[in-house]
Every structure is written in C-alpha cells, then in structure tokens.
Simulated scan of single mutants.
Amino acid sequence: MKVLIVDDSRLARAELRRLLEAHPDVEVAGEARNAEEARAQLAAQPVDLLLLDIHMPGETGFELLASLEAAPPVVFTTAYDAHALRAFEVNALDYLLKPVQEARLGAALDKVRAQQPADAPSAAVEAAPVPAPATPLTAQDQVFVKDGERCWFVRLGEVRLFEINGSYTQIYFEQHRPLIPRTLSQLEARLDPKLFFRANRQQIINLNFVEGVEPWFSHSLRLTLRGGEVVEVSRQQSVRFRELLSL
C-alpha cells in the first residue's frame, strides 16, 4: 500500500512515518507540505491512500480534493474536530485527531485494505505508470463531486446513472442527485465502457445496477435500475446492449 503524507508540519509528517513503520505492507511514497506539492506528486505516481491535513498554508485539504478529477482514498489528519462532519460528507475513510494514535491509524489502514480488490496488487507492489488524462477511470476510482455548498467523495462504481439536466449532468448515487458542469460526451470519454453504457442521448448507465430488462417499442429495450430509475434504451443502442451482454 503506497501512502502520500500531506501536512505542512515537518514534525507531524515525521510522526506519521514513524507510526507507519509498524505496518510492513505500507510504503510511504512521499511527503508534501501543501496542496500544490501534493498535486505534483499525485500526477507523478499513483498511491493507495492520502493521509491529508486540513489546515495548510494556501489551499486546505478540502480544496485540494476539489481540484482533483480523481483521487485515492483519503484519511484526514487534523488537530481540530470541527470539520469531522464535512470530512465524512466527502466520503473520507476516516478522520484522525492529532496527535494520531497508533490504534486509530491501524484501524484506518484496515479500512483501506478492505476496499482493495483481493486480486488487484496495490500500487506498492505494482507501480503502474500514471494514466494519461484520456485513460478510462475504473470502478474503484474516486471522484470529488461538488454541488453548491455540498460535496461528496464517491467511488465511480457506486454511481448508477448519469443524466442530462439542462446544461449540466445529474449524477445518481445512493440517495444523492448532484449536478456537475460536464456534458455526457465528456464523461463518456473518461468512463470505462465495460461498466458504463450510453443508453441514449440523455443517459449513461452503470451496467452493474441493471435490475430488469424488458422489450419496448420498435425493438428497443427498457431497463430498470436498482434505485427505481427507468431508462429507455434507443433502438440503435438496444442492438449494442444485446450484443454486449449476449454469450
């Protein structure tokens, strides 16, 4: 497991390094003193976890996340508990108060391990090259979503539907429906075609959330998603859907 430590305090970074030495499967991939340095390191290599301070000179930890198109799992480390609610609103795995306790850090690392696919090597074992911007994002990738004053840190595999809503795209995950300033074409270029399917001009669906399929007008199909949404697949895309899912 590769970890990037982001904290403006040298002593805090050194203490986290010391605590991580107790975990043989963890490798400190680097340290950053601020959001700018963190972005540069994330662009240079993939990591499995961000240990991220909130209050730093310049941008905060939240602002760093908002600037990333995709980010690894995050555990916040901070001397203040005032931002705990906001941290979990962006789906942080954990929120550790300084001085960080060894047991609490171990529990946070266990959460990261539990999320890693059993058959997928971690970045510490297989340091793959950084994907180019056009490389499709996987189901395990997490993206930061902001809609007004609310924000989320959501894994793409949990998104069941992308739908045009005016000049925005609406994202469906859990009970949330935030809007983002992206077109479906922009999203389709980044999404894994093995997981996400363009059903029509208005909607992209997550194939893992298809609960029911029924024939519809003019040889088209109508799909029901877990969550209750009903999607009518265009006639042309219905042909592709049948080919995609046929033996």
Rank of each mutant, 00 (worst) to 15 (best):
M1V: 09
M1C: 07
L11C: 03
A12N: 08
L16G: 00
R18F: 06
R18E: 13
E21A: 03
E27H: 06
E27F: 03
E27A: 09
A29G: 15
E37C: 02
A43S: 12
A44P: 10
P46I: 00
V47F: 06
V47H: 04
D48K: 01
L49K: 03
L50I: 07
L52C: 07
D53K: 13
D53E: 14
I54L: 15
H55G: 06
G58P: 03
E63C: 08
E63S: 10
E63P: 12
L68I: 08
E69C: 10
T78I: 03
A79G: 15
D81Q: 05
A87F: 06
F88Q: 01
E89I: 00
L93R: 04
L93W: 05
D94H: 12
L96A: 03
K98T: 05
E102K: 14
A103T: 10
A108L: 04
L109A: 11
A114I: 10
Q115F: 09
Q116I: 08
P117W: 13
A123T: 01
A124K: 05
E126R: 09
A132Q: 12
P133V: 14
P133S: 11
A134L: 08
A139N: 04
A139I: 12
D141I: 04
Q142P: 01
V143M: 07
K146W: 03
G148R: 11
E149F: 04
E149Y: 10
R150F: 07
W152T: 03
L156P: 02
G157L: 11
G157N: 07
G157H: 05
E158I: 10
V159I: 15
F162K: 01
F162S: 03
E163R: 14
I164S: 14
Y168F: 06
T169R: 00
T169N: 00
I171K: 02
H176K: 11
T183E: 05
L184S: 02
L184V: 04
S185R: 12
P193W: 10
K194G: 15
K194D: 13
R198C: 02
A199R: 03
N200P: 05
E211C: 04
V213F: 00
F217T: 11
S220F: 12
S220V: 09
L221H: 04
G227H: 14
E229F: 14
V230I: 14
V231N: 05
S234N: 10
R240V: 11
R242L: 15
L247G: 15
L247C: 14
